[in-house]
Write a protein that binds this DNA or RNA. Structure first.
Length: 569
DNA sequence: TCTCACACCTTTGAAGTGG
DNA sequence: CCACTTCAAAGGTGTGAGA
């Protein structure tokens, strides 16, 4: 079904196993289990996945907005120089080991075999797809980071850029125009920063974030939705009257291209289609559990509160000192709301994804990933890192050289990120282990969206007994005051996590002993990524950001975050 | 279908000012 | 020194003309 089934995984020049032409080859005995569980999850909604504890779970944030786009037919502009996605992919991750380092990265995979064209008011299939382009991974700039950092706040991939320029060498994700893609998240465990790929590996795909890559918007409904929601397009709001051009030509209709209700082409695949996909060998990569999950919202709120120390602080004073390092706090500030506006989606409306192990990697080695949920081993439960396969599978194929089981691009990504990790580690040791204070309120710049949100806040949960919304100033100062009142406390593992015994950690690291001499084994990572993978350029992709070791948090997202959380959104 | 220049916008940090 | 304001630069956005 997916293109990459039919051709060699492009990041892997020489799959050692000759029977592997597929990115997602899967040993039969494992495949049955995996596909079985996947079919169950996909077709039965993910109620079971929701309830399975202590697994790596990923949920797409901003579901409401994504759903709006999907109902029309999401389009993403691709340009020669690269264009960001809107909405950006923002995910919440749970189930990681708080004290283990992970690299998070994202790429785009074909959604189906079709090429599309826009005819009047709808997308239609227009032949078969063109050859799949080499995968390019967007490595999250914070990679690698501890699990607790990834779980603390939603992880935003808003800096990911899409391009149609196949010659691009600056790390953009290359796509074909008029083809449909879906984002895929990779979580790579990097237990030891110096041996970056010494752990497990998981993938998650997001079919509801599927989109058709275009060089110019085809559906004007999409244009309108983008303008209404993307702050950078604010100048085109109000029927474009903000635009000088429009003011000069006020008579001109701005909606001449508007179609009349196009059928959503991005509707979820039918069960048959899903089965077909799962039958093709890449099924293991289709790690989807359907996410139409209005159910269980209370449960999700609980989880998200536990993940967020600031929400926890207000829900449970005793958890007020759930702390990370200064660095993590700073990073957290940057990520509460990776986008520039208040998300229109309540934090509780997110699609949850259950980890499914990638079938078998192109070199023929089974990756060290979690066993399917319903037959989880106790080992994977206690490990805390990315889980491993059943013991029986470990004996297959080649000796378990953990790192060697990953696609080359991912290996390189880990290596690049590891350099940053070492530096971060140094800073980490220099900084005191305490949460830095929230910014003083007097210094705070309120974004328009934040103010709007506060004005409209009427949730009882955020109001004081008199029914008045709790002033943001009060909220911030209370956090600040609480931190000031509890000096010298050592950071704790997030309250949402069960206590981790050091012995388990030790066991894990023992199992994942890095090879003594990896030099000959590991592939030339940079060349495989297809572009110059400078870790610094990833860490500080934005030239405006000072290349300090600790990136300064963005102000507006922080305010948006507070406004959101305490508005009950 | 694609590229490009354009106007408009947000974000960010530096510089300036005053207490 | 701190808090605040102002400003400019960088870069994200859709538009519309033209290839």
């Amino acid at each position: 079904m997916f293109l990459h089934e039919e051709r060699r995984f492009p990041d892997y020049p020489q799959p050692p196993n000759p029977q592997l032409n597929s990115y997602a080859y899967c040993p039969p005995e494992w495949k049955d289990t995996v596909l079985g569980s996947q079919c169950r999850d996909v077709l039965k909604v993910d109620a079971e996945a929701e309830l399975s504890a202590q697994q790596v779970r990923v949920s797409l944030q901003g579901r409401e907005l994504w759903d709006k786009f999907r109902s029309i037919g999401t389009e993403m502009i691709i340009t020669k120089s690269g264009r960001r996605m809107f909405p950006a992919c923002k995910v919440s991750v749970t189930g990681l080991n708080p004290k283990t380092k992970y690299v998070l990265m994202m790429d785009m995979v074909p959604f189906d075999d079709n090429k599309y064209k826009w005819t009047r008011d709808r997308w239609e299939v227009n032949g078969m797809t063109e050859p799949h382009l080499p995968n390019r991974f967007f490595i999250h700039p914070d990679s690698p980071a501890l699990g607790e950092r990834w779980m603390q706040y939603p992880v935003s991939f808003h800096k990911l850029k899409l391009t149609n320029n196949t010659l691009n060498t600056s790390g953009l994700v290359i796509l074909h125009s008029m083809h449909k893609y879906q984002p895929r998240l990779h979580i790579v465990q990097t237990a030891d920063p110096r041996v970056p790929h010494s752990g497990g590996y998981l993938r998650f795909t997001f079919p509801e974030a599927a989109f058709i890559a275009v060089t110019a918007y085809q559906n004007s409904e999409i244009t309108k939705l983008k303008i209404d929601n993307n702050p950078f397009a604010k100048g085109f709001r109000d029927n474009g009257l903000n635009s000088k051009r429009q003011r000069e030509r006020p008579i001109q209709s701005s909606s001449s291209k508007r179609p009349t209700g196009s059928p959503p082409e991005t509707a979820p695949k039918s069960p048959d289609a899903i089965r077909k996909t799962l039958d093709t060998g890449d099924g293991a990569d289709l790690t989807v559990s359907s996410s139409g999950d209005a159910h269980g919202s209370g449960y999700q709120v609980e989880i998200e509160a536990a993940l967020n120390p600031f929400i926890s602080a207000f829900m449970n004073r005793g958890a007020a000192d759930t702390a990370g390092s200064l660095e993590e706090w700073a990073e957290g500030l940057k990520y509460p709301n990776g986008q520039d506006t208040l998300p229109t989606t309540p934090s509780t409306s997110s699609g949850h994804y259950e980890a499914r192990p990638p079938a078998r990697l192109p070199n023929g080695i089974v990756p060290l990933t979690r066993q399917p949920a319903h037959s989880q081993t106790s080992e994977s439960q206690l490990g805390g890192g990315l889980p491993r396969l059943p013991q029986s599978l470990h004996s297959q194929g080649q000796p378990q050289r953990p790192g060697a089981s990953l696609p080359a691009a991912i290996l390189e990504a880990s290596a690049a990120a590891a350099a940053v990790a070492t530096k971060k580690e140094e800073v980490h040791q220099q900084l005191e282990y305490s949460l830095p204070y929230p910014p003083k309120v007097s210094r705070v710049h309120f974004t328009e969206s934040a103010l709007r949100s506060l004005e409209m806040t009427s949730s009882p949960s955020t109001s004081d007994p008199s029914g008045q919304p709790r002033p943001l100033v009060d909220i911030l100062n209370r956090i600040r005051g609480r931190r000031e009142g509890s000096p010298g406390k050592h950071p704790q593992v997030q309250s949402g996590w069960p206590p981790l015994a050091l012995g388990k950690e030790a066991l894990l690291s023992q199992t994942y002993q890095p090879p003594p001499d990896p030099s000959g084994e590991y592939l030339p990572l940079q060349s495989m990524l297809g572009y110059q993978n400078n870790s610094h350029s990833h860490t500080h992709a934005d030239p405006r950001v000072a290349p300090s070791l600790m990136e300064y948090p963005y102000k507006a997202p922080l305010l948006d975050f507070y406004a959101n959380e305490f508005a009950g959104k």
